[in-house]
Design a protein around this nucleic acid. Structure first.
Ligand SMILES: [Mn+2]
Ligand SMILES: [Mn+2]
Ligand SMILES: [Zn+2]
Ligand SMILES: [Zn+2]
Lengths: 149, 149
DNA sequence: GTTTGGATTTGTAATGATTACTAATATTAA
DNA sequence: TTAATATTAGTAATCATTACAAATCCAAAC
């Protein structure tokens, strides 16, 4: 019963979510892996700790967390939902080469919008796509090799 | 062989897409319905014009258009991909009450970002969620009725 | 400590969107 | 006209997610 366990337990209780072992472990996983994991990744990794874990429980838990505002749901691609423990508005960049999703800061109030007067905005998502610095470097290397050969 | 048909045909040809009847009709549909339709909507509506149309053809066509940069793909929700004939960067607002997706203008260069130096940005997506003015009005009306009764 | 009722978890079945694949059809060039 | 090629249609397969029901857990009452 390490200290973090107690901390996460009370965090869930304060949101009226009963702190079951599975729920605490999913929350802990999200905190320790802020790399925007998929359900598959969360499920596979947690199975080594909880051998009886069901994928349905991971889905249920994440949906409960989402309704409680504990996680941010990312729908960058249509075939994989990702989860982010950081709920404050920030930008996401998906590298089309390696698939990594990285955060970037964005001054949300600096965005000039036209055509939203009278709208009640609850949620802001900013997704950029392109190539990350690491992959840009690899592509250049490959290009050079191709020119030499 | 109305004039638009010829126009769309050459537009496809200029992108190295052979202008088949199905492809022209999908393109025409997107232009006439800039409301960000789903594959289901496109398929159902075009079936009345092309009774033999296959949903696979709609998928294939939209994927070809996407690769050619003719359409923008919207992944606002994880269970429904939508298509937008307007490819210039602009914001999308999805009403959580009625599901309508509306456009808004955004001065993309005014966005201050921190943490993207060295990244090659190819695509920018901005999705807001909330309640549209029409639904805000309805909610207020319902509230008033509930207070009266 | 036992009982009991509700919450949670599990496992499987169902759903739904998208893709894979193949035969049929249409188009193009010889 | 023919033959090669591209496109389409129809069906099967895939994969993420949800629905559902039985098993299990847990907290409160006795
Ligand atoms: Mn993030
Ligand atoms: Mn749009
Ligand atoms: Zn990369
Ligand atoms: Zn609305």
């Amino acid at each position: 019963m390490y200290p973090l366990f107690k901390k996460l337990s009370t965090a869930l209780a304060s949101k009226n979510i009963r702190p079951s072992f599975q729920r605490i472990k999913v929350l802990e996983y999200l905190i320790e892996n802020p790399c925007h994991p998929t359900v598959e990744q969360i499920f596979t990794d947690l199975q080594s700790i909880i051998p009886t874990l069901s994928k349905t429980t991971v889905y249920n838990t994440l949906n409960i967390f989402h309704k409680a505002g504990l996680v941010r749901v990312l729908n960058i691609e249509d075939n994989e939902t990702r989860y982010d423990i950081i709920t404050e508005t920030h930008g996401h960049f998906k590298c089309e080469e390696c698939g990594t999703i990285s955060n970037f800061n964005i001054d949300i109030d600096s965005i000039e919008t036209d055509g939203l007067s009278g709208f009640k905005v609850n949620d802001r998502n900013i997704y950029f796509k392109g190539v990350c610095p690491k992959c840009l470097l690899n592509i250049k290397h490959i290009d050079r090799k191709e020119h030499i050969s």
